[in-house]
Each structure stands twice: as structure tokens, then as C-alpha cells.
């Protein structure tokens, strides 16, 4: 169901790791649950994030939700397009709706994330 080349958090973020760079976003399930996303707040380039700590906020029409980093590291890019087009998170959560690129500090942290089938199972029962 979900893309098989990604890893997931139980808080519904995904991460794609290529070499030492991780791209982070929220899952299609999360975007659907939130509804129309109207605001995304992301950390600035050069700041650092810790695994499973909040790194930003996503707001739908109705609600505010924290974003949790799947991996720790240094932010090398935030998706600035989301400040004017937050709806990309709904329309293309695994593509143009990406949020952060992080330089991964400890690749071993990947082992603490959910495999695609485990994430599917999580959303099927919730």
C-alpha cells in the first residue's frame, strides 16, 4: 500500500535515505486524516533535529499537529515551496509535499523505524 522504498514512524512520517541524506515527509494516511493542510512550519537550514523529537508543525483547517523527525541530523534543506503551497502535502505527500532534507548523523537510527508492511498494519488497525 505505502511506498516500499521508505521507512516510517508510528507518528506517520516517512523517510527516504539516499547515501547520507534523508528526505522526510508525512504519509498519505496522515495527510488524509488531517484534511486540507493550510500551514506548514519547518526548521531553518543549518539547524539540527533529533530522532523522534518535534521538528515542525503542520496545520489543517481544523487542527494543529506536531511533526516528528524519523532520524536525527543537520537540516540541509527545508521545502520552502510549502509556505505558499501547503496543499502539496495533500496532493503529493511522497513527492512535491516533502518537508526536510537531513544529513544523517547516525545511520543506525534507521533500524528503529517501521518497515512498510509494519506501517500498513499500523494504519489498518487505527
Amino acid at each position: 500500500m505505502v511506498p516500499t522504498d521508505l521507512r516510517y514512524t508510528k507518528d506517520h512520517e516517512w523517510v527516504r535515505v539516499e547515501d547520507d541524506v534523508a528526505t522526510v515527509g508525512i504519509t498519505s494516511y496522515a495527510a488524509d486524516q488531517l484534511g486540507d493542510i493550510v500551514f506548514v512550519e519547518l526548521p531553518s537550514q543549518g539547524s539540527s533535529v533529533e530522532q523522534f523529537a518535534t521538528f515542525g508543525v503542520v496545520e489543517s483547517v481544523k487542527a494543529v499537529s506536531d511533526l516528528y523527525a524519523p532520524l536525527g541530523g543537520e537540516v540541509i534543506e527545508a521545502n520552502t515551496e510549502l509556505s505558499s503551497k501547503p496543499e502539496l502535502v495533500n496532493s503529493d505527500p511522497y513527492g512535491a509535499g516533502w518537508m526536510l532534507r537531513i544529513r544523517v548523523g547516525d545511520a543506525g537510527q534507521l533500524g528503529e523505524l517501521l518497515q512498510p508492511d509494519a506501517y500498513d498494519e499500523l494504519t489498518a488497525t487505527s
Partner: peptide, 9 residues
Amino acid sequence: PLQYSGILD
């Protein structure tokens, strides 16, 4: 019902 197609729509 909270929403059908989406609140903005």
C-alpha cells in the same frame, strides 16, 4: 459528519 470531500471544497 465532519467532512465529505474536504472542508475547503
